[in-house]
Nucleic acid binder design. Sequence first.
DNA 1: TCTCATACTTACTTTTTTGTCAGTCCCTTA
DNA 2: TAAGGGACTGACAAAAAAGTAAGTATGAGA
Lengths: 116, 116
Amino acid sequence: MRKLTSTNAINEASLVRNCGVVYALTLIGGRWKPTLLFSLLGGTMRYNQLLKSIPGISERMLAAQLRELEKDGLVKRTVYAEVPQRVEYELTALGMSAAPLLRTMSEWGNSLRERP
Amino acid sequence: MRKLTSTNAINEASLVRNCGVVYALTLIGGRWKPTLLFSLLGGTMRYNQLLKSIPGISERMLAAQLRELEKDGLVKRTVYAEVPQRVEYELTALGMSAAPLLRTMSEWGNSLRERP
DNA sequence: TCTCATACTTACTTTTTTGTCAGTCCCTTA
DNA sequence: TAAGGGACTGACAAAAAAGTAAGTATGAGA
């Protein structure tokens, strides 16, 4: 749970306000978010499909990160009135707009990995 | 302190290994790192100068984030044999190479901020 | 010897994030 | 009536990140 009046929260809020990078990090910086975004760049996926395709992720974290991405408008969640239940996740236009950024980050990261 | 055998650490390590984005986030994702990088993009700065120019940062966090940036090769620390002590921080070539990425992130972040 | 400036450390607490795991809800078919 | 699939949720615990405050190191000059 977040404590809005902690120094930590206040510092973070102020950094987010003043810095687009920090704000971007709140959107894509969660433990499993880059992986989720990459998965969804490949197309729409169901909850269980994501769960099985991402090694190590727990249901709680999957649901939590998806909820955040949805709240931030990067991901759209669609429930189909079927049995058994079917819920699909896909990137919104905003989510798609992260693709170039993810690519840039990935390239920069990988280039820094290979060094003496 | 880090506990190398926690599920958390294992998950993180595996994500870092498989994903350049996650690796990039370990380099620039700390609370104060984007701000520090932006400050240092403006040129060499001393410890106290950074401390005073970044509202809210504590000495512990400043020193810690600088040490991480230095360990990762993004920042160079130079000690001058003077009295009183003088320590300067500047970006390395690797640190400079983050500039386009920071700009991209900043633009993406700021563009997402303005929405209905 | 005492104080000063600069640049940190260290020990400890609080806050936040992540992980574990059992339980829920909604129908449907046996 | 029970079992089953799919998609979660909740309570609690562990780990990690961040914050607080006081202390250390160094040599210079009063």
